[in-house]
Design a protein around this nucleic acid. Structure first.
Lengths: 342, 342
DNA sequence: GACCTCCGGTTAACCGATTAACTTATTACT
DNA sequence: AGTAATAAGTTAATCGGTTAACCGGAGGTC
């Protein structure tokens, strides 16, 4: 392969200065149509395209947007292994980013410094942060002057950062209300970690509200927590729930993945869904339709969420739109086979 | 935030030249321990770390490895939406890359030029290519002198590129043999596209061999093809198979995702798995254990595959290991509930 | 003492773009 | 006609590092 041509090669070929080539490339109005044509011809002939590394260095803009995913402590191994949620979200981001000429880099982040360095090192132009990180991160982030979009966050940073979230409270409400309307009274709530996850808390608030509306007294006995969001965790909490039965007939979970794991555990213990337990997931992952019984769930459009986040972020980067804003996406109850009337 | 310190700031602070700082940073032996200590102290004080963009430009090395995923033509929208396989693979790559101080960039590639540009633009140090692309790509790739690892490819490029694959033929063989041993005679083979996919062809070869061994004449009537690998495609081909029934009782698929879609379609038509149809998947995605019936499948360790690919690639980049090599990973039959003895 | 070799550093060119400042030719205006 | 404004380029510094080439001094050898 002959070496990649540089802007100077193009300039020589076209008989102009490198600056002129650069102006053509960047659509600066200084260049006459005639010269522009000559330059474009040379670019074509040499099959030239600019080196982004050099562009980044001199423009101090990388055309790179970063996605930070939390790493659960005891599985730092896999950033998004098994996690269908991340999967769909990232796809949405990638799509919009590509269309808008940005590349996407993903990192799983344990250590905070590692993350800050990553942003600075690579001259990331904008950052999407999924899920919760320790509070100190957000404080640090204030000092980094690149646009940031926070996804699924409830801390008091919404005036500082862009935000995309879902109406979690209403989601929890819809799920519980659905079960209540089907006649269930003893309804469990399965979260990952209420203390740590504001998203889970919001969903629980909605859940509680629906119960109260129906005159049911919420009880902490009906709250179950897992550590991570995996099928295995779901199965584990499922067994737990079965053995500590308080007459539970309905289950609201914060994730389809957990719900799927729970269904399996329930079946393995010789019980049936929805005959013995009605269960509602959250997210509406594409797998939901394909398990047996298919999963009743609270739908959120994760793919769309990714697209919105990317769009919001790129707008901010190109400051088409400088003030921070929060987008709240709707949720919707999707009734399938995993719930039934008592 | 005060501006990010540069190497010249550090040099000034330490009272040495920028070159010396660079040598310290790169562990070049020229620097005395005393000076080194002074420089490190200055680095610490200023909280300095090198700008990768600048490093990339001057070293012509980006510490970036690229992953190219094929985009199916009519779903260019989503690079790896729904695709649990990509998911696990990419996680493996990301893990190893991060440990070895590389960042990972992912792109879905429709257009070839787009891809070539991407590699050049970003100064990608090494490339992992998943799945099949048009032949012309590989010819182009020969001219790009960065290490490349091809995953799941059977074209005649194995001497030019690194390679990680799975023993697909044996996988197909195992799946078919399992069904044969259970007494099945009319066994369908469900592929995406035999003409296009060498991987599918290999698996089919093994499949055919097992049939022949058992004295069963393979017939093209038992071959079904989908377009893409999605649950929906699986369901569609499932309906097709049911309506064109040639007394089929066993099904071998090239993907768990297709198998899961098929199972749903079969159930929806009022038939049962494994009572009416025994079905074998391929991959052993984590979801397999959690559907009902749980899926008998040919296991390959996709996560490990990603790790191996990344390791191989980084070795090549750092030329610890310059000759190209092919790694073939084993497969294994995992018997679960979706197959039964006739 | 003359010569050579290391050692530990510095200088400055360079990677491939961008862009502020400058130049020159042309057009516009009074 | 004289001056200002504009159009169309060029020059050269710069982004933040790397690294080949150079350099002075200490130590070793004969």
């Amino acid at each position: 392969m002959n070496k990649k041509p540089t802007i100077r090669d193009v300039a020589k070929q076209a008989g102009v200065s490198p600056a002129t080539v650069s102006y053509v490339l960047n659509d600066v109005k200084k260049v006459s149509d005639k010269t522009k044509a000559v330059v474009l011809e040379a670019i074509e002939q040499l099959n030239y395209f600019p080196d982004f590394t050099a562009v980044s260095l001199s423009k101090k803009k990388s055309n790179l947007i970063g996605i930070m995913l939390p790493i659960i402590e005891d599985s730092p191994a896999s950033v998004f292994k098994n996690n269908l949620y991340y999967n769909e979200f990232v796809s949405g981001v990638e799509l919009v980013a590509r269309n808008r000429k940005f590349d996407t880099m993903i990192t799983g982040v344990g250590d905070l410094d590692e993350c800050k360095n990553w942003i600075m090192k690579r001259n990331i132009d904008g950052l999407i942060i999924l899920g919760m990180f320790p509070e100190s991160l957000y404080n640090e982030l204030k000092n980094i002057n690149i646009p940031i979009a926070l996804i699924d966050t409830y801390e008091d940073y919404t005036n500082l950062f862009n935000n995309v979230k879902v109406n979690d409270e209403y989601g929890g409400y819809l799920a519980a209300k659905h079960l209540v309307e089907l006649g269930h009274r003893n309804i469990a709530f399965v979260a990952t970690n209420l203390a740590m996850s504001p998203v889970d808390r919001k969903r629980y608030q909605g859940f509680e509200e629906a119960l109260k509306e129906a005159g049911i007294q919420p009880s902490s006995k009906f709250i179950f927590e897992t550590h991570d969001i995996t099928f295995e965790d779901g199965a584990k909490v499922g067994k737990e729930l079965l053995s500590s039965d308080h007459g539970i007939t309905g289950i609201v979970t914060v994730s389809d993945v957990l719900a799927i794991g729970m269904i399996k555990a329930i079946q393995q213990e010789g019980k049936q869904v929805p005959e013995d337990y009605s269960i509602v997931g959250f997210d509406d992952l594409s797998i939901c339709k394909y398990i047996t019984p298919s999963l009743t769930t609270i739908r959120q459009d994760i793919f769309e969420k990714g697209k919105l986040a990317a769009d919001q972020l790129v707008n901010a980067i190109e400051s088409l739109n400088s003030e921070q804003k929060t987008i709240e996406m709707p949720v919707e109850l999707i009734v399938r086979e995993s719930t039934r009337s008592l």
